[in-house]
Design a protein around this nucleic acid. Sequence first.
DNA 1: TGAATTTCTTGAAGCAGTTCAAGTTTTTTA
DNA 2: TAAAAAACTTGAACTGCTTCAAGAAATTCA
Lengths: 190, 190
Amino acid sequence: MFTSLLDHIQKFITLDFEEIDILESKLSLSKIKKKEHLLKEGQVCNTMYFITNGCARQYIINPRGTEQTLQFAIENWWITDYLSYHNNTPSHFYIQTVENCEIIALEKNTLESILIQIPKLERYFRIVSQKSFGATQMRIKFLFTMSAEERYNHFKNQQPDFVQRVPQYMLASYLDFSAEFMSKIRAGKV
Amino acid sequence: MFTSLLDHIQKFITLDFEEIDILESKLSLSKIKKKEHLLKEGQVCNTMYFITNGCARQYIINPRGTEQTLQFAIENWWITDYLSYHNNTPSHFYIQTVENCEIIALEKNTLESILIQIPKLERYFRIVSQKSFGATQMRIKFLFTMSAEERYNHFKNQQPDFVQRVPQYMLASYLDFSAEFMSKIRAGKV
DNA sequence: TGAATTTCTTGAAGCAGTTCAAGTTTTTTA
DNA sequence: TAAAAAACTTGAACTGCTTCAAGAAATTCA
């Protein structure tokens, strides 16, 4: 039932049977329909979400009223607002499913009690978040150095399947250009 | 000698005397002159750097040959390339001191041996990196939604002292606009 | 201190990408 | 399966910021 998360954890640390039991007893899997919100701007985020199936995104609504996606999460990714989570401050972000999803929602209280029983999981979450941080630095590099068309082609080469999975306007905003410009890039009119 | 790091750690976890001794026995403080490199593009990054005094930055050289700063680190910040660090891949980044610095350089091997003796430090590094990740998400939000002038004013309001500490052209590139445009913003010619 | 280097400033020309508006296509839902 | 909603396309007008070039000011260092 939680094999995808257990497998992911065991890429980084080794769990024994007892620990797996503890973990399984505390986790729960939810089915969430497409376009539902896991977090809205202004709420304090006290939950981490692990996607076992489907796709979610973190987005904002910009001053012009347009949604801009800051992050996507697919199978085997965690998504949350860590700043709101750690500081107990209202979030600046929305988190929303993009497809029907199966998600493990892990509340702060639950996670803390798990971490007391299985301290080794601290290591798992450390490594996962350090790697995410590293990936985000690369993302900023691409945003800084590539043209819109280069960013699109680069992304398409790196994640060819994913490009099909989300509406173009969401991907356009993730790559920091307009939906209209995305159309022109794809049509070769640039 | 390592009080700034020890204090920082103890904001998140509690260390006993024995653990502090172990830690102190494994750490070393280096003085690094302004403009020296801690990491160059192409090298595998196997060290994390904690700034106890001074300022460093992570930057790239863009296709036009101009340096672009992706990240600054001042007192009580860690700086490294986590992607290169974890994957043992050549780094895409330079890390360089911006001022004369006092730095705790923590090599991967050393850190791993410390973490075996003091597993609770996993928690410290987890929380620190999750908070950094959260801060980077906010940074991307600002890059996406604010004009160049707004980004400058926002940064100046948040970090008034820091603006004085680094050359304007470095800050301009960190805020993702040109050094020339920074001049015009500051002169009110925009 | 004086020379060399680094950093900052200014204006002119240009362009990558936005905004707007309207229409078309595709997908979802009742 | 028809109607509604969501997503995509297109062109025209515009603009925020870049690039270039050259000089001025500030800082560093021998």
